[in-house]
Write a protein that binds this DNA or RNA. Structure first.
Lengths: 163, 163
DNA sequence: ATTTATTGCATAACATGTTATATAACTTCC
DNA sequence: GGAAGTTATATAACATGTTATGCAATAAAT
């Protein structure tokens, strides 16, 4: 058994730690999405959600909304275009800007996700860390331990069993 | 001004959120390292720290210690070999395993880092989130806001000014 | 009005994580 | 003691983030 240095070093490795947990959480989330048979990546959802919430947005606005850089947004939107979930058109008043909107297929996916998948994911994550409190390092440890014990995809069933 | 969807969606986008914050924290950490004139990447430090703490480790043990997959460890150790901070030799009893140890240069870097850089980084991160408490989503919001207000690299100076 | 600066997006190059798989070295099991 | 399985590492292929930079469209300046 090897010591987990990143955990041991605490604040010093906070960046690595958060990234690592984020990656695991997102991988677990992906599993939930896949089990539901939806052909989409977890990282693409925030883009669809942003448009659903705010109406058509430009690439730059999407990058801001999702909190990544513009080239990253350009790439993900390219994927969503390929998948047929969004549509892109030059803004009428400014030919530089590209307005990205949901297609019917994209809106259907969002509507279905809102009903079926998003609540499930949010509930599973809430089950994992919703009741935590206290210093962040302790909460992160609890989250890592929790994920190792019961993966996210098993956390809805567990809740339902209790009802 | 565009709404931050990832923040708005809370638990639903927790994975993206943690990753995003981790990436920013690590970028800020890198800045501190660069300002100190050290030729090393933030993500390489945990490997050096792991060997420093536990003595020579194999690639697989390093991967475990740092919490990434083995190919990732292989690559980072390759970089550290190039940089001359570590040395790698087949284990005497098992030729498959490669024992990675610190070179003198690597040990010097670790010793210097322990004295000068690591406390600085840990203090800056502690300044950012050490006093936080409460639900994780609130703490994450505070961390993001805090980073946006005063980047990590400015957080030691600020502390020292008060003394 | 035409030059100059700025803005918005695309693209290239790179960083660093992942999964899948090949290969060599050890173990196991008749 | 040799065949078959297992383990440790390396490598390839891919995902998804970044920075740097080019180009076209717009805005600003003289």
């Amino acid at each position: 058994m090897v010591e987990d240095v990143v955990r041991t070093l605490g604040f010093l490795c906070m960046g690595s730690r958060l990234r690592r947990i984020g990656e695991r959480l997102q991988a677990d989330t992906q599993q939930v999405i896949d089990e539901a048979g939806l052909g989409i990546q977890a990282g693409q959802y925030p883009f669809l959600a942003a448009i659903d919430r705010s109406g058509p947005l430009t690439i730059g606005e999407l990058a801001q909304a999702v909190g990544i850089t513009q080239p990253g947004a350009t790439r993900t939107i390219g994927q969503l275009l390929e998948l047929g979930y969004v549509d892109m058109q030059p803004a009428p008043d400014d030919q530089r800007r590209r307005l990205v909107s949901l297609t019917d297929k994209g809106q259907d996916l969002v509507d279905h996700s809102k009903k079926v998948i998003w609540p499930r994911i949010a509930a599973a994550v809430a089950d994992l860390c919703g009741d935590l409190d206290g210093p962040i390092l302790e909460q992160l440890a609890a989250i890592e331990d929790g994920l190792a014990t019961v993966p996210l995809a098993r956390r809805n069933a567990a809740k339902e069993e209790n009802s």
